[in-house]
Design a protein around this nucleic acid. Sequence first.
DNA 1: CTAATTTTGACACTTATTGTCAATAGAATA
DNA 2: TATTCTATTGACAATAAGTGTCAAAATTAG
Lengths: 103, 103
Amino acid sequence: MSTETLGEKLRQIREQNELPLRKVAALLDIDVAILSKMERGERKLSKEVVLKLADIYKCNPEELLVLFLSEKIMYEIQDEDLGEKALKVAEKKVKYLKANKTK
Amino acid sequence: MSTETLGEKLRQIREQNELPLRKVAALLDIDVAILSKMERGERKLSKEVVLKLADIYKCNPEELLVLFLSEKIMYEIQDEDLGEKALKVAEKKVKYLKANKTK
DNA sequence: CTAATTTTGACACTTATTGTCAATAGAATA
DNA sequence: TATTCTATTGACAATAAGTGTCAAAATTAG
């Protein structure tokens, strides 16, 4: 399984597109320093930035968004013995909510 | 399935034990107002407080902790269409980490 | 070597979170 | 009803966390 972080993946995609941080940061309208830190996991990525990057790199936003969300989840349960149980409970809740969405 | 929040459950347990907020707050060494808000979901509970409450009420900490963690997870994916997918990815990661824990 | 790119750290600014307190409201009881 | 215990609410200050900006230093490419 892929153990790559979202930041690492984004950097990889950027390099494949041969775009310098400078240009991408300009498109995102953020400072180069921040984007550099985001790619290296020193600053948090926002959903907004992830979606803009998917647009800039013309890649599937879903994959990136799932990775983004799963990292946020992992952050909450890191080092917790009960993490797996909590995930299962959360899954049940999501399914429950989905089933009762329109009610 | 139980749609009860952790705060609601804690209040229920406290009332079953016939303990006033005042006493529990004193045992926790926090302000009554904060505990009141925690039970009503107006303030976040901390892992520390949850464990102390399990101790005070002499109940199984695991159940409370799982609920605590699952609520934190739910908070991260609320309203996200990709929430369920993200949960599955997170589960895989947890399993992967567990398998490689001692390596 | 020079220029472009990236990284690093300091700093200010804003936003979230947390604790403290007192006034108010509600419930139970004398 | 008056009193006391309990719980809720909101204002406020203190603290912590997150963000943006900048410039110097380090690294890489031409």
